[in-house]
């Protein structure tokens, strides 16, 4: 699966959050990190091509006055066209997944009725959902990074892995997909590991996959019992 991360951040060099996220995915082979702050009209065809070749399109930006920065709107105004969204009775972007990574200095619990913001992130991002709907593409749950500067080391570790999963793990984000994602990453480590470590990694991988199978089996048994009870 190819993921295109469209990053809009007018002051990206001074953003610790964006540097952290960038560093976290720079070795992932199927992730293209793509900045759009200095887009010109000459780039438009290339941008459309990038959209067409991606399976998952992720818009990543800080919340500026409860919306995406102007550079992302400028990019969308140049790149989006009727033909990109609909050709005859075909919708060229319909197989894509569309997602948003949004960063903000306010705590997440303020993004709700009664909080200091008073609106949810979903409400604030509704115009992007409308565009996704127009394209007949699939909207994924939003990934928010709030108050990065206050995060502990443990919280940053969780953020990093969740962000990697958000960009590369098949949707929906359920436990079974999570197990498979970790097992695949373990395979990557296995390829690079010295012989002394590879034996342990193999045993861990075997155990994780065996647990995965066991959970599936137990859940199927449980489903059968429940079905029997309903009859």
């Amino acid at each position: 699966m190819k993921t295109l991360v469209i990053v809009a951040h007018p002051e990206i060099t001074s953003s610790a959050t964006q540097s952290f996220l960038r560093e976290g995915v720079k070795d992932l082979p199927d992730v293209l990190w793509h900045r759009v702050d200095e887009l010109t009209e000459d780039d438009v065809q290339n941008e459309r091509q990038l959209l067409m070749t991606a399976d998952r399109i992720v818009f990543q930006f800080p919340l500026y006055w409860y919306a995406a920065p102007a550079s992302l709107k400028h990019w969308a105004d140049l790149v989006f066209s009727q033909k990109l969204f609909k050709r005859g009775d075909q919708y060229p972007l319909q197989d894509k997944e569309v997602a948003v990574v949004v960063t903000t200095g306010k705590p997440l619990n303020q993004f709700q009725a009664g909080g200091s913001v008073g609106f949810t992130l979903d409400e604030l991002l509704s115009s992007m959902r409308a565009i996704t709907h127009e394209a007949h593409a699939t909207w994924l749950q939003t990934f928010s990074v709030t108050q990065f500067s206050y995060m502990s080391e443990d919280q940053k570790m969780t953020l990093l892995i969740n962000y990697q999963r958000y960009l590369t793990q098949p949707a929906p984000d359920n436990f079974s997909h999570r197990e498979k994602w970790y097992a695949q990453r373990l395979q990557q480590y296995l390829k690079l590991a010295p012989e002394s470590e590879s034996r342990v990694l193999e045993m861990i991988q075997t155990e994780i996959l065996a647990n995965h199978d066991k959970i599936q089996e137990l859940q199927s048994t449980l489903a059968m019992i429940k079905e029997g009870e309903e009859e």
């Binding site: 990093l160 892995i161 647990n211 995965h212 959970i215 137990l218």
Partner: peptide
């Protein structure tokens, strides 16, 4: 490196949850 450390750190949470799910479902 931080990324590898983060991966194994989070992997422990996954394993923990696997065993919890096995026990609870059993």
């Amino acid at each position: 490196d931080f990324k590898t450390r983060a991966y194994f750190h989070q992997l422990k949470d996954l394993v923990d949850e696997q065993y919890r799910r096995i026990e609870q479902t059993e």
